[in-house]
């Protein structure tokens, strides 16, 4: 009986998606208008042929790779600035106060609101997209890093200094490892936001490739099944990266959950 319970728990989350697909398939038969609701198997057929060129704009795979490259670049730019800045702001109250007001001012501006300015500065191309993505990823990484550093237990610092740690050793051997789980959480959230921002940025003017571009382009040709297939790829890639981040978290930072 134990195994059926485990199975129940494992598969209960699959019931609704399967049900939705069945409803979708039935509805598409009844509506019978592929420009309104494509059939599920038509979408599957698109997904099953991911290397095929679509509308002269590249395949699902090539566009996905393009999108991942962009998000990777933007994400890395954001992390490279946000983590050191967060460490400094978490460590020094003076630096925190110096930067905080500006950050609070810039944070509520949605990343996409920067797009016109980015286009004006960097013209159409990779730089402006990467810029927008960086802005999306930047704030969650920064804020979690600051939080992580500020929450490093005071006792750890005192133990380390009585054992003879220099300032540099405190930073490298206590503060950063102690803050690492929260920094990692920041990276994970930042990546998720970067991915969402990317696809939206690709839909807006300024790009000629990527998954966002592909689904918008497909709309112009009435290829609804390509739109839906593209959306699915976007979702799957998002889940895959989140899973990756989470599995590292479980492996490397288990202590944070387990320590009482």
């Amino acid at each position: 009986m134990y195994t059926t319970k485990v199975l129940q728990r494992r598969y209960i989350g699959l019931i609704l998606p399967v049900l939705l697909i069945i409803i979708w398939e039935i509805a598409s038969y009844i509506i019978n208008n592929p420009f309104f609701l494509p059939r599920f198997d038509a979408v599957l057929a698109v997904l099953a042929d991911p290397f095929r060129d679509r509308l002269g704009s590249g395949s699902l795979i090539s566009n996905a790779i393009r999108s991942i490259q962009r998000v990777g670049l933007g994400f890395i730019c954001a992390a490279v600035i946000a983590i050191p800045l967060g460490i400094m702001m978490g460590w020094s109250d003076r630096l925190y106060r110096f930067f905080d007001s500006t950050i609070q001012l810039l944070r509520p501006i949605p990343p996409l609101a920067w797009l016109p300015l980015a286009l004006a500065w960097f013209k159409i191309g990779l730089t402006s997209v990467v810029f927008i993505i960086s802005i999306g990823a930047f704030f969650p990484i920064l804020l979690n890093t600051i939080d992580g550093i500020k929450n490093v237990r005071k006792t750890w610092l005192e133990v380390a200094s009585t054992l003879g740690a220099s300032e540099r050793q405190l930073l490298l051997k206590v503060i950063i490892p102690g803050a690492a789980p929260l920094i990692w959480t920041g990276l994970r959230i930042g990546f998720g936001i970067a991915w969402m921002v990317l696809v939206a940025a690709e839909i807006l003017p300024g790009t000629t490739s990527g998954l966002g571009y592909l689904i918008m382009y497909a709309y112009n040709f009435g290829q609804i099944e390509l739109i839906v297939a593209g959306m699915m790829v976007i979702g799957i890639i998002g889940i895959a990266f989140d899973f990756l981040f989470q599995s590292v978290e479980k492996k490397k930072f288990a202590w944070r959950r387990l320590e009482r």
Partner: peptide, 14 residues
């Protein structure tokens, strides 16, 4: 030359 031992939670959990 002097080492301090605290009440609790002083080990580095990582």
């Amino acid at each position: 030359q002097m080492a301090m031992i605290f009440q609790e939670y002083s080990l580095f959990p990582w």
